[in-house]
Design a protein around this nucleic acid. Structure first.
Length: 574
RNA sequence: CGGGGUGUGGCUCAGCCCGGUUAGAGCGCCUGGUUCGGGACCAGGAGGCCGGAGGUUCGAAUCCUCUCACCCCGACCA
């Protein structure tokens, strides 16, 4: 492609609305332009990258027996009502105003509706279906350039199996395909087990790319054996233990003490482990007329309650409102504790660190008062112990063999054993070899195409621009002609360009005239094509071509006659 | 949805508090010339009813009210 004919608007300055590196660079390198919040136009260079990623994904899907579909974005309300998601998806789904249609945010329903009349015998199974298609999600707050948007390209795949073992196989095929895809895209990634959600038992893994701009916080062990979403991560935590002193409960006055830190300061101590932090949660009633439940969660004063872990134990929970606290506990947030509860139907749960602990200090359920010498075993009958704390940076892994690190990460892929939820709702069933009717067992597997590009750029950039590599570089070679425009330079650059193309290289040829060399070099580094070839007056005198590797910045002079012999070597190194 | 911020030529921004001639700068763009290995130089030029509506005022980019859009933090979400 000749630069002079290519629409490649590069920007010297940082766009005012871009903050993270991938967003800034995608705009500056002329890959994308924003149309409105969370919606981007793909310019020729960006499209080229996205298409390359799609092609890798397509190849790997086909390699595991995937059937490529292309389903519509528009979808009838009726179908979504059948699975309950017309309501459940809430405001995150775009809804058409003048027709009973939605813009599909995902395609379980539509794929299942095709499976239902067609996958009717065990002989039709298993099947692996996928598409690379535009998704619409009405994100409340799009952010981070292409990281969270309202319209994006997703590869979504769905497996249909007759048995749970079959699902396991489909799932692991996808997992392997995902590893191939991200490796080929040049991403440094890892996987974490995602939280199982309300359905429980369903296996689910997220493919994560470490990046400061990421929205997820992930815990990884230094020996790389453990990785988990912070929400559900566990660490080794020293138990508080018992002293068995048998000291009696003792209430004391703590004027205006609201937080654990203030309490520690008031008591003149630094170790907060025995200052039990109490948080009251509401378990909303499941049906009309039923009563809400209440849970008091206790953790050490230097820990935080993980609401995700709690909700995995109690299903839906929410923090109690101030007026609820007062009514149920008889005190405001800073003075609540496990004894003296006004409302007797509260369940108590404490973190494992506090198992059977005594000599604890906590709120007295009376404003401005605390109690010391609380013995959970003696004073809080019926208390449960579970892992409900949030892991902190620098703690030891559960096996105590390595240190844990909290990192920010971008989720680029998610695979999920769906089970029978959608097939059941839409009654997609097949007959087994005994003639018995069974519900089809499904898995779903998603990859965000643009997110891969963004995540790649987050990991591969420097002060000058993007550094492409792997298989997703928009072009393999950036040919630059510099210097005073003479017929000589123009002709030899043109000739090299044609020869490179003939040899199968993808070349961006900066043939612009009356553009100073500096601009060409800056643009080349910004766009970040792995190899730059420079033809100039200076080089031509020695019958040489300069080869620059974008990533390392290394330059080497190569005799014109040798260039085609040496190129594979350079491509390898780039 | 809560909190904060920003809207001024194509881009990045100044001017706004403290209202007062024709609204500025840099970059980019056009013309001519000089340059030609890391975002060149000189000369000339085009381009904006200051997000929108209403109001205050003799007079509004500037003050007030409403509104729209975008960005950031959080909530939510995958």
């Amino acid at each position: 492609m000749r630069f002079s004919q290519y629409f490649l608007p590069t920007l010297k300055e940082v766009p005012s609305d871009a903050v993270i590196p991938s967003h800034i660079l995608m705009v500056r390198a002329g890959m994308i332009r924003q149309l409105t919040a969370g919606v981007y136009s793909y310019l020729p260079l960006g499209l080229r990258v996205f298409r390359k990623i799609e092609e890798i994904v397509r190849q790997e899907m086909n390699a595991i027996g995937g059937n490529e579909f292309l389903l519509p974005g528009l979808s009838p309300n009726e179908l979504w009502a059948e699975t309950g998601r017309l309501v459940d998806y809430g405001d995150d789904m775009f809804r058409i105003k003048n027709r009973e249609l939605v813009l599909a945010p995902t395609h379980e329903e539509v794929f299942t509706s095709i499976a239902k009349p067609n996958l009717i015998s065990y002989k039709n199974l298993p099947q692996m279906w996928y598409q690379i298609q535009t998704k619409f999600r009405n994100e409340a707050r799009p952010r981070g350039g292409m990281l969270r948007v309202r319209q994006f390209t997703m590869k979504d795949a769905y497996s249909f199996d007759a048995t749970w073992q079959g699902l396991d196989e489909s799932y692991s095929k996808q997992a392997q395909a995902y590893r191939n895809i991200f490796t080929r895209c040049g991403l440094k990634f890892f996987t974490v087990t995602a939280h199982s959600g309300a359905m429980g038992g369903s296996e689910s893994e997220e493919f994560m790319v470490e990046a400061e701009a990421g929205e997820d916080t992930v815990v990884i062990s230094s020996d790389n054996k453990y990785a988990s979403n912070l929400e559900v991560a566990s660490s080794y935590a020293e138990p508080v233990g018992r002293s068995d002193s048998g000291l009696k409960l003792e209430e004391f006055h703590t004027p205006n003490i609201k937080s654990i830190d203030e309490l520690a300061g008031f008591l003149g101590i630094t170790d907060k482990t025995r200052l039990a932090k109490s948080r009251l949660f509401v378990v909303p009633a499941k049906s009309e007329g039923a009563k809400d439940g209440y849970v008091l969660a206790l953790v050490c004063g230097d820990d935080e309650v993980s609401e995700t872990k709690l909700s995995n134990i109690y299903a839906a929970i929410r923090p109690g409102h101030p007026d609820e606290l007062l009514e149920i506990a008889g005190a405001d947030a800073g003075s609540i504790g496990p004894v003296n509860f006004r409302n007797k139907s509260v369940e108590f749960i404490a973190d494992l660190r506090l198992k059977d602990a005594d000599e604890l200090i906590s709120g007295a359920c009376k404003n401005d008062h605390h109690i010391r010498n609380i013995d959970l075993k003696r004073d809080v009958p019926g208390i449960k112990y579970e892992d409900i704390r949030t892991v902190k940076d620098g703690e030891l892994s559960v096996d105590r063999n390595s240190k844990l690190r909290l990192v920010k990460a971008i989720e680029v892929g998610h695979i999920f054993k769906l089970g029978t939820r959608y097939a059941e709702a839409l009654s997609a069933k097949y007959l087994d070899d005994n003639g018995k009717e069974n519900v089809i067992i499904m898995g779903s597997y998603g990859i965000g195409i643009e997110r891969i590009a963004a995540a790649y750029i987050e990991q591969n950039n420097d002060k000058d621009g993007i550094i492409w590599g792997g298989e997703i570089a928009p072009f393999g070679i950036h040919l630059i002609s510099v210097g005073k425009k003479s017929d000589e330079i123009r002709q030899s650059a043109n000739k090299l360009y044609e020869e490179l193309k003939k040899s199968g290289y993808e070349v961006l040829y900066d043939d612009r005239e009356d553009i100073s060399p500096g601009i060409k070099f800056k643009d080349a580094d910004l766009i970040g094509i792995p190899l730059q070839l420079v033809i100039s007056e200076k080089n031509m005198k020695n019958d040489e071509i300069e080869v620059k590797i974008r990533r390392s910045g290394v330059r080497e002079m190569v005799k014109s006659a040798d260039i085609f012999n040496r190129l594979p070597f350079f491509m390898e190194k780039a």
